[in-house]
Amino acid sequence: MSVATQSTAVRTGRAGRALIVTVLIFFALFYLLPLGVMVINSLKPLPEITGGNMMALPQEPTLEPWRSAWSTAQIGVQATGLKPYFLNSILMVVPAVAISTMLGALNGYVLTKWRFPGHRWVFGLLLFSCFIPFQIVLIPMARLLGLMGLAGSLPGLILVHVVYGIGFSTLYFRNYYAAFPTELVRAAMIDGAGFFRIFWRIMLPVSGPIAVVCIIWQFTNIWNDFLFGVSFAGLDAMPMTVALNNLVQSSTGVREYNVHFAAAILAALPTLIVYIVAGRYFVRGLMAGSVKG
């Protein structure tokens, strides 16, 4: 990825610039429209949505849809709202991200500074595993989780996310450590520092930026996952995305659009907040996953 930040030297005329700015603003509205409309309509009572204009601001703003989405909406058997599923997602994401990031850091360290014959093969196989369509592992994974007694449980989901997260976390740390001067590691070895000492004292202290990138990437991916959740979570360990889908698709009763919107925003909020706070790292993670150096 390039580090240069200056814009192009190409010069454009005044009419050209006006056109460019218009197009850029049009697309900004295109990207903002769905989110904006969801926020506006999540604050309306239901009749205002079904009988009114989606672009109109709420006449009688209400927070009732949000309260309902969070704590009383009917999802599955009981009317619990999204609260328990939000908790499920948190309990699933935190350990899965922590474990896969730690393993990724260690793997990246070994694959760059302690190379052994065949290290390239190991990395190639890990890299390919990042991109497989997960449909190819659904059947055996369901079998295995059943045999291990982990079907429909949070530990089962955590295991799944760690296993399929290692590829990306290793990729990040490996590419980052590859640029780190090997001479320093060698010098420490001559001084008698061992494998873990070098990792703790030399590698980890410089790993801040890539750790943030990796954590954000894993957090976003695991939080947003639907396929594994719908396949392996059952009713008790259901994560946020699956609960949201169940709420929106449920065919019983009146469709409470305002509640659906509030629920959708609640499901999106954690990753959106991460994006707003640390967008720079999020972008870097996306790029590192595609245009690796």
Partner: peptide, 30 residues
């Protein structure tokens, strides 16, 4: 277009990119 010394480049870039942080389930619902 963004590369043409646009003043609000950072803000626009953030707006163009935020959908990537959302789950496809949220996108689909919207």
């Amino acid at each position: 277009f963004l590369d043409q010394k646009i003043r609000a480049e950072g803000g626009l870039r953030a707006i163009y990119l935020y959908p990537m942080a959302l789950s496809f389930i949220v996108t689909g619902t919207a």
